[in-house]
Computed example of a mutant assay.
Amino acid sequence: MIRSMVLLMLAGIPFYIQAQYKKLIWADEFEYSGLPDSAKWSYDTGNHGWGNNELQYYTAKRKENALVSNGILSIKAIKEDYKEAKFTSARLVSKNKGDWKYGRIEVKAKMPQGRGLWPAIWMLPTDWEYGDWPKSGEIDIMEHVGYLPDSVFGTVHTAAYNHMTGTQKTKSVFRKNLASAFHVYAMEWDEDRIRIFIDKEQYFEFANEKQSSREWPFNKRFHLLLNIAVGGNWGGKMGVDEFVFPQTMEVDYVRVYQ
């Protein structure tokens, strides 16, 4: 056993990942062409600001905004007039097609770039059993805002800890090549804690205080979301550079282990 642990560490593979999260239970490798697999993904649609004063219209089943080709899912934000909005994009959701309580979620992705863009890889509760946001929780595996081109953020929101009251639990990490190289954005979640990683580096941890759902609503099913927002309270804090469009978030794979 000790020899196996040493060999794994020498190989650069964190042992606890191998030990705890061996079983692949859900994945999209994007080894097909066309629209995202409808057995795994649905769409959130519309242009009502999404609670953040965002500017985009999220479309459904529109290849201009979400397309799989050459093994890559491309989510594209476009500057165009569309149903009273000035921008379009896509927000893919796995709700009722991929819903999990605990596990390791991995997404290998490359970021768009430009002021005003706000891509995210994140999770929301499927059943909202503790009430509306933020009571039932939110897990942000990766958020990136274009005016901070070298930073990504991992965050959790709950009734006790959320950005509306300035109490959210968050941390950032820096990389110079977010828009030019793929990175693996991952989250490990069990009954005691949530850990967030970029590649093999853990940079955020949130522990279960074992008090109430106000602090820890993360004992229910959650699903995954992939999207690019335009503008918004955070993404548009420094304005939107309309000359950078179109911009694409590329996703190589999504894998879920338990």
Rank of each mutant, 00 (worst) to 15 (best):
N52V: 00
L8W: 07
L148A: 15
V244M: 09
R221M: 09
N53Q: 13
E143A: 01
W122D: 03
H163N: 10
I25Y: 09
E205I: 11
G12V: 03
V145E: 04
I13F: 05
I72D: 02
G51Q: 09
G235L: 02
R115T: 12
F206G: 07
E80W: 03
A27E: 11
S42F: 08
R3D: 14
A207V: 10
H163I: 10
E188W: 05
N65G: 05
N177F: 06
E84N: 12
N53F: 07
K40L: 04
A19V: 04
V107A: 12
K61H: 14
N65Q: 05
E242H: 05
P36G: 11
P246S: 03
K83E: 10
W133A: 15
H48G: 15
V244I: 12
W118H: 14
V152N: 03
I141H: 07
R195H: 07
R62T: 13
K210W: 10
Y203K: 11
I2R: 14
T59R: 01
M123V: 05
M164C: 07
S69H: 11
K176Q: 10
L67V: 12
V240W: 00
I13D: 00
N96H: 11
E138M: 11
K23N: 13
S180L: 09
I228V: 15
F182K: 06
A120W: 04
E106V: 05
S33W: 02
L10E: 14
Q202W: 03
Y21G: 00
A181G: 08
R255D: 15
L10Q: 15
D99V: 14
F245A: 02
N70L: 07
E209A: 15
K171A: 15
R104Q: 08
F174I: 10
L73D: 01
V107E: 14
G103A: 07
Y58K: 12
F182G: 08
Q18V: 15
Q247V: 05
K110H: 06
P119Y: 04
E84A: 07
K176G: 13
K95H: 08
I72E: 06
Q211Y: 08
Q18G: 05
V254T: 06
K220G: 01
T170I: 13
